[in-house]
């Protein structure tokens, strides 16, 4: 039987997961049309950290430092963000089926990011901020559409997400069709997600995401109680409204930041927290940070498949996550209902 979460178990889990992430990241950097040895990767990373010149060929230097490393970092940060956002929405809505994609939050964020690119292209911070606003407005809409007099039901909430998602997708397509002059990515890139876009925003996005994840982590104990219900949580001492506002905003912030650089990648926030709970239990002090690591590993793995399976062409990352995620969703839906 599963043991209760202790500080020691949390620490060991996170150390193991970071080691796995490091190994997977190195392998992901090594794999591609031009194969690179792990030793070369280590040399370049060491050189980057110490500020010296690495003893590898300039081609390898460029491939690793300027192409693959930023992409790997992007996959890591986006995977972590979507998984933690999924964990947060699931706890807040007491619904194991909640996820930024299914609830339409990711598409709302994409709409915000696209609008910012169309109307304020020169302002780099505009994209994540507008995506955050889009995500926040969407979750508020879905929340209210999903409510009944007796609280939110699983089916109604998912239905509200589906309707909102399809409306927002149409708005995204409309905006991208009329805004032909801007340097926008394709409709596909926005709605199925991809990591091939520019990575200049990466440090800013990573900043937003790390801050959002840390804030959610510090609310983990309160989220444990909110998973059981608002009323018992309040009776047990949780400042329910305050925690809800903080976590909704943080989850929207990290979803918005992730979508602003990667487009809408589905199902990550659904599968990962579920898998973590299955192995490690439902304590959010574990589920939040472990989901961040497992989500990063998963998306790194999916992205490596996406860019190698039909090389030299690339699949959109969302194709891979949906192929895995949709059957998991069906399985969960049957179990929860």
């Amino acid at each position: 039987m599963r043991e209760r979460l202790t500080q020691k178990r949390l620490l060991i889990t996170l150390v193991v997961l970071s080691a796995v992430l490091l190994v997977v990241a190195c392998v992901a950097i090594a794999i591609g049309s031009e194969s690179v040895s792990v030793l070369a990767i280590v040399k370049i990373l060491a050189a980057k950290l110490t500020g010296q010149v690495a003893a590898v060929s300039p081609e390898q230097q460029i491939i690793i430092a300027e192409v693959r490393l930023p992409r790997v970092l992007l996959a890591i940060i986006v995977g972590a963000a979507l998984s933690v956002a999924g964990t947060a929405y699931q706890a807040l809505l007491r619904n194991p089926l909640a996820d930024p994609y299914i609830l339409g939050v990711s598409t709302g964020a994409a709409l915000g990011a696209i609008a910012a690119t169309v109307f304020a292209e020169r302002l780099p911070i505009g994209r994540p901020v507008a995506a955050f606003i889009g995500a926040t407005l969407t979750i508020a809409t879905v929340y209210f559409l999903g409510q009944t007099q007796r609280g939110a039901s699983n089916e109604r909430l998912i239905l509200a997400g589906v309707i909102t998602n399809s409306f927002l997708s149409s708005a995204v397509i409309f905006l991208l069709t009329v805004a032909t002059g801007s340097h926008l990515r394709s409709v596909f890139s926005w709605l199925i997600g991809d990591f091939s876009g520019d990575v200049k925003l990466l440090p800013l996005i990573a900043g937003f995401i790390v801050v959002g994840m840390v804030i959610i982590f510090f609310q983990a104990r309160s989220l444990n109680l909110l998973m059981i219900g608002e009323e018992p949580a309040r009776a047990l001492g949780v400042e329910v409204r305050r925690v809800q506002i903080i976590v909704y905003l943080s989850a929207s912030l990290i979803t918005g930041a992730a979508v602003a650089v990667s487009g809408v990648i589905g199902f990550v926030g659904l599968i990962i927290p579920h898998a973590v709970r299955l192995v490690g239990g439902s304590d959010n002090r574990l589920v939040v940070p472990a989901s961040a690591f497992v989500g990063a590993i998963f998306l790194l793995f999916a992205d490596t498949i996406a860019r190698t399976v039909i090389a030299p062409s690339e699949l959109h990352i969302g194709v891979i996550t949906a192929l895995i995620g949709a059957p998991v969703f069906v399985y969960l839906l049957r179990r929860v209902s």
């Binding site: 039987m1 599963r2 209760r4 979460l5 007491r94 619904n95 194991p96 998973m227 059981i228 219900g229 018992p232 709970r277 299955l278 239990g281 439902s282 304590d283 929860v336």
Partner: peptide
């Protein structure tokens, strides 16, 4: 009490 997530009685 409706618990939709796996939680042991002790954790609860």
């Amino acid at each position: 009490t409706i618990v939709r997530f796996p939680l042991t009685a002790m954790e609860f």
